[in-house]
Protein backbone atom coordinates (compact mmCIF):
# COMPACT_ATOMS: atom_id res chain seq x y z
CA UNK A 1 0.00 0.00 0.00
CA UNK A 2 2.87 2.30 0.71
CA UNK A 3 4.14 2.09 -2.83
CA UNK A 4 0.65 2.84 -4.06
CA UNK A 5 0.44 6.10 -2.24
CA UNK A 6 3.67 7.59 -3.50
CA UNK A 7 3.29 6.51 -7.11
CA UNK A 8 1.22 8.71 -9.38
CA UNK A 9 0.19 5.65 -11.31
CA UNK A 10 -3.15 5.13 -12.97
CA UNK A 11 -2.48 1.44 -13.45
CA UNK A 12 -0.43 -1.09 -15.31
CA UNK A 13 -1.09 -1.86 -18.93
CA UNK A 14 -0.30 -5.09 -20.72
CA UNK A 15 -0.35 -5.35 -24.48
CA UNK A 16 -1.58 -8.43 -26.32
CA UNK A 17 -1.64 -9.59 -29.86
CA UNK A 18 -5.00 -11.25 -30.18
CA UNK A 19 -8.45 -10.88 -28.66
CA UNK A 20 -8.23 -14.45 -27.38
CA UNK A 21 -5.14 -13.63 -25.38
CA UNK A 22 -6.90 -10.57 -24.01
CA UNK A 23 -9.92 -12.60 -22.96
CA UNK A 24 -7.66 -15.15 -21.38
CA UNK A 25 -5.68 -12.49 -19.55
CA UNK A 26 -8.82 -10.81 -18.26
CA UNK A 27 -10.15 -14.11 -17.00
CA UNK A 28 -6.90 -14.91 -15.24
CA UNK A 29 -6.73 -11.46 -13.71
CA UNK A 30 -10.21 -11.94 -12.36
CA UNK A 31 -9.27 -15.34 -11.02
CA UNK A 32 -6.32 -13.69 -9.35
CA UNK A 33 -8.75 -11.39 -7.59
CA UNK A 34 -8.39 -8.15 -9.52
CA UNK A 35 -11.60 -6.23 -9.94
CA UNK A 36 -10.76 -2.70 -11.05
CA UNK A 37 -9.54 -3.24 -14.55
CA UNK A 38 -10.43 -2.45 -18.08
CA UNK A 39 -9.68 -3.99 -21.44
CA UNK A 40 -9.06 -2.05 -24.61
CA UNK A 41 -9.64 -3.43 -28.07
CA UNK A 42 -10.01 -2.06 -31.59
CA UNK A 43 -13.40 -3.74 -31.96
CA UNK A 44 -15.99 -5.17 -29.59
CA UNK A 45 -14.62 -8.53 -28.49
CA UNK A 46 -17.43 -10.92 -27.77
CA UNK A 47 -17.37 -12.17 -24.23
CA UNK A 48 -15.17 -9.34 -23.01
CA UNK A 49 -17.73 -7.83 -20.65
CA UNK A 50 -18.40 -11.24 -19.16
CA UNK A 51 -14.68 -11.84 -18.77
CA UNK A 52 -14.34 -8.58 -16.88
CA UNK A 53 -17.52 -9.21 -14.95
CA UNK A 54 -19.03 -6.03 -16.27
CA UNK A 55 -22.77 -5.65 -16.59
CA UNK A 56 -24.75 -2.58 -17.47
CA UNK A 57 -28.23 -2.57 -18.89
CA UNK A 58 -28.96 1.09 -18.40
CA UNK A 59 -28.58 2.08 -22.04
CA UNK A 60 -31.41 -0.14 -23.32
CA UNK A 61 -33.52 0.81 -20.32
CA UNK A 62 -33.06 4.53 -20.86
CA UNK A 63 -33.73 4.13 -24.57
CA UNK A 64 -36.98 2.39 -23.76
CA UNK A 65 -37.99 5.06 -21.27
CA UNK A 66 -37.11 7.73 -23.80
CA UNK A 67 -39.28 6.00 -26.36
CA UNK A 68 -42.26 5.89 -24.03
CA UNK A 69 -41.85 9.54 -23.09
CA UNK A 70 -41.52 10.53 -26.73
CA UNK A 71 -44.58 8.58 -27.77
CA UNK A 72 -46.79 9.75 -24.94
CA UNK A 73 -45.48 13.29 -25.23
CA UNK A 74 -46.05 13.39 -28.97
CA UNK A 75 -49.57 12.05 -28.74
CA UNK A 76 -50.44 14.45 -25.93
CA UNK A 77 -49.11 17.37 -27.94
CA UNK A 78 -51.29 16.42 -30.89
CA UNK A 79 -54.34 15.91 -28.76
CA UNK A 80 -53.84 19.20 -26.96
CA UNK A 81 -53.18 21.19 -30.13
CA UNK A 82 -56.08 19.85 -32.12
CA UNK A 83 -58.75 19.72 -29.43
CA UNK A 84 -57.87 22.41 -26.90
CA UNK A 85 -55.37 24.96 -28.17
CA UNK A 86 -56.51 25.26 -31.73
CA UNK A 87 -59.68 23.33 -32.51
CA UNK A 88 -60.53 23.79 -36.15
CA UNK A 89 -62.97 21.85 -38.25
CA UNK A 90 -61.31 20.40 -41.33
CA UNK A 91 -63.64 18.60 -43.76
CA UNK A 92 -65.96 17.68 -40.92
CA UNK A 93 -63.47 15.28 -39.41
CA UNK A 94 -63.48 14.72 -35.66
CA UNK A 95 -61.09 16.97 -33.79
CA UNK A 96 -59.62 14.00 -32.02
CA UNK A 97 -58.90 12.04 -35.20
CA UNK A 98 -56.47 9.55 -33.69
CA UNK A 99 -55.68 7.69 -36.94
CA UNK A 100 -54.06 10.89 -38.12
CA UNK A 101 -51.94 11.15 -34.99
CA UNK A 102 -50.23 7.79 -35.33
CA UNK A 103 -47.51 8.86 -37.74
CA UNK A 104 -46.26 11.78 -35.67
CA UNK A 105 -46.57 9.84 -32.43
CA UNK A 106 -44.39 7.18 -33.94
CA UNK A 107 -41.81 9.65 -35.18
CA UNK A 108 -41.64 11.29 -31.75
CA UNK A 109 -41.14 7.89 -30.12
CA UNK A 110 -38.29 7.10 -32.46
CA UNK A 111 -36.65 10.48 -32.21
CA UNK A 112 -36.67 10.75 -28.45
CA UNK A 113 -35.63 7.16 -27.85
CA UNK A 114 -32.73 7.40 -30.31
CA UNK A 115 -31.48 10.64 -28.83
CA UNK A 116 -31.91 9.46 -25.23
CA UNK A 117 -30.13 6.22 -25.98
CA UNK A 118 -27.22 7.85 -27.74
CA UNK A 119 -26.78 10.51 -25.10
CA UNK A 120 -26.99 7.96 -22.32
CA UNK A 121 -24.33 5.88 -24.05
CA UNK A 122 -22.03 8.89 -24.26
CA UNK A 123 -22.70 10.12 -20.75
CA UNK A 124 -22.38 6.72 -19.09
CA UNK A 125 -19.15 6.19 -20.97
CA UNK A 126 -17.92 9.52 -19.70
CA UNK A 127 -17.52 10.87 -23.20
CA UNK A 128 -16.39 13.31 -24.37
CA UNK A 129 -13.22 12.90 -22.35
CA UNK A 130 -10.30 14.67 -23.94
CA UNK A 131 -7.69 13.37 -21.53
CA UNK A 132 -7.23 9.89 -20.16
CA UNK A 133 -4.11 8.45 -18.53
CA UNK A 134 -3.92 5.40 -20.80
CA UNK A 135 -3.08 7.68 -23.70
CA UNK A 136 0.22 8.40 -21.96
CA UNK A 137 1.52 5.02 -23.03
CA UNK A 138 2.90 5.40 -26.55
CA UNK A 139 2.07 1.82 -27.53
CA UNK A 140 -1.57 2.52 -26.72
CA UNK A 141 -1.94 4.31 -30.05
CA UNK A 142 -2.41 0.89 -31.57
CA UNK A 143 -5.37 0.09 -29.32
CA UNK A 144 -7.52 1.57 -32.04
CA UNK A 145 -5.90 -0.44 -34.81
CA UNK A 146 -4.65 -3.89 -34.03
CA UNK A 147 -3.54 -4.33 -30.44
CA UNK A 148 -5.36 -5.45 -27.32
CA UNK A 149 -4.67 -4.07 -23.88
CA UNK A 150 -5.52 -4.97 -20.34
CA UNK A 151 -5.14 -2.34 -17.69
CA UNK A 152 -5.25 -3.20 -14.02
CA UNK A 153 -6.02 0.01 -12.27
CA UNK A 154 -4.36 1.46 -9.25
CA UNK A 155 -7.63 1.84 -7.39
CA UNK A 156 -7.97 -1.94 -7.19
CA UNK A 157 -7.60 -3.16 -3.64
CA UNK A 158 -5.20 -5.85 -4.68
CA UNK A 159 -3.04 -3.52 -6.75
CA UNK A 160 0.63 -3.59 -5.99
CA UNK A 161 3.14 -2.05 -8.31
CA UNK A 162 5.62 -4.92 -8.37
CA UNK A 163 3.29 -7.83 -7.97
CA UNK A 164 0.75 -6.64 -10.48
CA UNK A 165 3.56 -5.99 -12.91
CA UNK A 166 4.87 -9.48 -12.34
CA UNK A 167 1.44 -10.96 -12.67
CA UNK A 168 0.81 -9.26 -15.98
CA UNK A 169 4.21 -10.26 -17.28
CA UNK A 170 3.30 -13.81 -16.46
CA UNK A 171 0.46 -13.66 -18.98
CA UNK A 172 2.96 -13.55 -21.87
CA UNK A 173 2.04 -10.13 -23.19
CA UNK A 174 3.93 -8.28 -25.90
CA UNK A 175 4.85 -5.72 -23.33
CA UNK A 176 3.84 -4.26 -19.99
CA UNK A 177 4.03 -0.62 -19.08
CA UNK A 178 3.08 1.60 -16.21
CA UNK A 179 0.40 4.15 -16.89
CA UNK A 180 1.12 7.52 -15.38
CA UNK A 181 -1.64 9.75 -14.30
Amino acid sequence: METNKQSPLYGILAEFETPEQLLDAAAQARDAGYKQMDAYAPFPVEGMSEALGFRDKRVPLLTLIGGFCGGIGGFTLLWWCTTIAYPINIAGRPLFGWPHFIAITFECTVLISALTGTLSMLILNGLPMPYHPVFNVPAFARASSDRFFLCIEEKDAKFNREETMKFLQGLSPLGVSEVER
Partner: peptide
Amino acid sequence: ALGWRGSAKHWHRYTAIYLLLAAIS
Protein backbone atom coordinates in the same frame (compact mmCIF):
# COMPACT_ATOMS: atom_id res chain seq x y z
CA ALA B 1 -13.54 11.02 -31.51
CA LEU B 2 -14.63 12.40 -28.10
CA GLY B 3 -11.78 10.63 -26.36
CA TRP B 4 -12.83 7.16 -27.42
CA ARG B 5 -10.32 4.63 -26.19
CA GLY B 6 -11.92 1.30 -27.02
CA SER B 7 -12.50 0.32 -23.42
CA ALA B 8 -14.51 -2.85 -22.92
CA LYS B 9 -17.02 -0.79 -20.96
CA HIS B 10 -17.29 1.63 -23.82
CA TRP B 11 -17.82 -1.16 -26.30
CA HIS B 12 -20.40 -2.77 -24.06
CA ARG B 13 -22.67 0.28 -24.05
CA TYR B 14 -21.71 1.13 -27.59
CA THR B 15 -22.82 -2.19 -29.06
CA ALA B 16 -26.02 -1.94 -27.05
CA ILE B 17 -26.95 1.44 -28.50
CA TYR B 18 -25.72 0.53 -31.97
CA LEU B 19 -28.06 -2.44 -32.11
CA LEU B 20 -30.87 -0.39 -30.61
CA LEU B 21 -30.40 2.35 -33.15
CA ALA B 22 -30.55 -0.31 -35.84
CA ALA B 23 -33.73 -1.70 -34.35
CA ILE B 24 -35.21 1.79 -34.14
CA SER B 25 -34.15 2.77 -37.65
